[in-house]
Simulated scan of single mutants.
Amino acid sequence: MADVRELLARFGPRSVRFDLRIRSDVVHAQLDVPGALAFVPPGLGREVLECCHCSDVVRPTRVLMDHVLIVVRKEWARQADLVRDARLSLSLAEVCAGYHGVVTGEQRRELERAREAFEQAKAQCWPKEFPSMLPRVVLAALNEIKKRNGCPNCGARGEIRNSAGVVIKCEKCNGSGVIPVSDRARAEAIGRHVESYRRHWAPAYMWMLNTLSDAEAEAASALRRALREESEVLA
């Protein structure tokens, strides 16, 4: 069976309706691809799958952005909790150090560990401007998912044949079939200078990309299972 993403791409957005039974002998053994999409659990994954592969142009819907806001709020709260806990640990370490008039070596080490943990927690936080940048970051990540930067070494298959004719994992893409997009391209996509992207925005962008990619992959797997079950019924 062809990649389900390629099958979805053959249907325009108008054809992906759950109240219709649309058949196509062009796709694969008369499989009802839009109908099978209805069996993909609703949520972020299905929204990303439809947004990236059911239209030529990526246009995030209101429903998709609502799902994005849910996961962003959870991650933002998680980061805030880490900083708050690290700050509290540092404050306690500062109070305990020298409480009896003499700072011991163990107290100094604990104080240094607490300071380091606090700085690491702050460094992992997204930029304060992230909320205003959210639409641009989401759009850039969705476009990257749609384009799927295929590895030219293996033809996006993730495998190649060596000189002995043995199929092995492609080293260029580490078997993923895709190669990373450059920092410069990602910086341009979100409207930031490459150095600013690397220093401040890379963690936030990669979190968004990985979150959307994982959800899309899960939805694609659900669609693949639905099509497989339908093909078995038609057989």
Results as ranks from 00 to 15, higher is better:
16 V>W: 06
105 G>L: 06
161 R>T: 12
35 G>M: 04
163 S>P: 04
213 S>R: 11
115 R>M: 15
8 L>C: 07
100 H>P: 14
173 C>P: 08
64 L>F: 01
97 A>G: 02
123 A>E: 08
222 A>S: 15
230 E>V: 15
90 L>C: 12
62 R>G: 02
42 P>H: 07
123 A>H: 11
193 H>T: 06
160 I>E: 11
35 G>S: 02
183 D>I: 00
76 W>T: 15
156 A>L: 13
9 A>I: 00
165 G>W: 04
113 R>G: 07
157 R>D: 13
8 L>W: 00
29 A>D: 14
220 A>H: 14
134 L>M: 14
59 R>E: 05
95 V>D: 12
197 Y>R: 08
78 R>M: 06
138 V>K: 11
196 S>D: 02
182 S>M: 00
34 P>C: 03
139 L>N: 02
89 S>C: 04
226 A>Q: 09
151 C>T: 04
9 A>K: 08
39 F>R: 10
87 R>C: 11
209 L>D: 05
144 E>P: 03
178 V>N: 14
69 L>S: 13
187 A>Q: 01
38 A>C: 05
119 E>M: 14
53 H>E: 05
186 R>S: 00
158 G>T: 04
130 F>A: 08
100 H>R: 11
67 H>Q: 11
120 Q>C: 09
131 P>A: 06
142 L>I: 00
181 V>H: 10
146 K>A: 10
51 C>W: 01
119 E>R: 13
55 S>M: 00
173 C>I: 08
103 V>K: 12
33 V>T: 08
143 N>F: 04
211 T>C: 10
80 A>P: 05
221 S>T: 12
166 V>W: 07
204 A>W: 00
168 I>E: 12
99 Y>V: 15
234 L>Y: 14
181 V>A: 02
177 G>N: 01
221 S>P: 07
161 R>D: 13
228 R>L: 13
79 Q>W: 10
14 R>E: 05
172 K>N: 13
180 P>H: 13
206 M>A: 09
205 Y>M: 00
31 L>R: 09
74 K>D: 10
216 E>H: 03
113 R>T: 12
189 A>N: 02
119 E>W: 15
120 Q>N: 12
119 E>A: 15
224 R>A: 15
28 H>W: 15
20 L>H: 11
153 N>V: 14
13 P>L: 07
